[in-house]
Amino acid sequence: MSEHYAALGLKSDATLSDIKKAFRQKASQFHPDRNSDPDAPARFREVQEAYDVLSDDDKRKAYDDNRRRNLLDDPAQTAREIWQGYFQQVLNRT
């Protein structure tokens, strides 16, 4: 499961204004025309997908509900996925 809030660098209580601002910043940062990094197109698509979900009220509600359900169903697996995503981001920045 993709972590859309992390892709935009936001917490789950972010407002629509926060989401739009973060999207503009990240999209500009990872846009393939501006960023020659080989990972830029994939990161740009990830940011675009996150924005598409989080900016739509119905999609965001379904995403948040699914996130909560996953945390309750298998918290250990969820924690592993969160840590793997975090370390992947840390390693990509160095």
Rank of each mutant, 00 (worst) to 15 (best):
M1R: 04
M1N: 05
E3M: 04
E3S: 00
H4T: 03
H4V: 00
Y5G: 01
A6W: 06
A6N: 01
A7N: 00
L8V: 08
G9C: 04
G9P: 09
L10R: 09
L10A: 09
K11E: 15
S12R: 13
D13F: 10
T15C: 13
T15Q: 10
L16I: 12
L16H: 15
S17G: 09
D18Y: 06
D18E: 13
I19T: 12
K20F: 12
A22G: 13
A22R: 05
F23L: 00
F23T: 01
K26R: 13
K26C: 08
K26L: 11
F30I: 03
D33V: 13
N35C: 05
N35T: 05
D37I: 07
D37F: 06
R43Q: 15
F44E: 02
R45A: 14
E46T: 02
E46P: 01
Q48Y: 11
E49I: 11
E49M: 09
Y51S: 00
Y51D: 02
L54P: 03
L54Y: 09
D57Y: 10
K59P: 04
Y63R: 03
Y63W: 10
D65W: 05
N66Q: 05
N66P: 05
R68I: 08
R68K: 03
R69Q: 11
L72N: 08
D74H: 10
P75W: 10
P75T: 04
A76C: 03
A76N: 06
Q77K: 12
T78Q: 07
T78D: 06
A79T: 01
A79L: 01
R80T: 14
E81K: 00
I82V: 12
Q84W: 09
Y86F: 15
Y86M: 05
F87Q: 04
F87Y: 10
Q88L: 11
L91E: 13
L91T: 04
N92E: 12
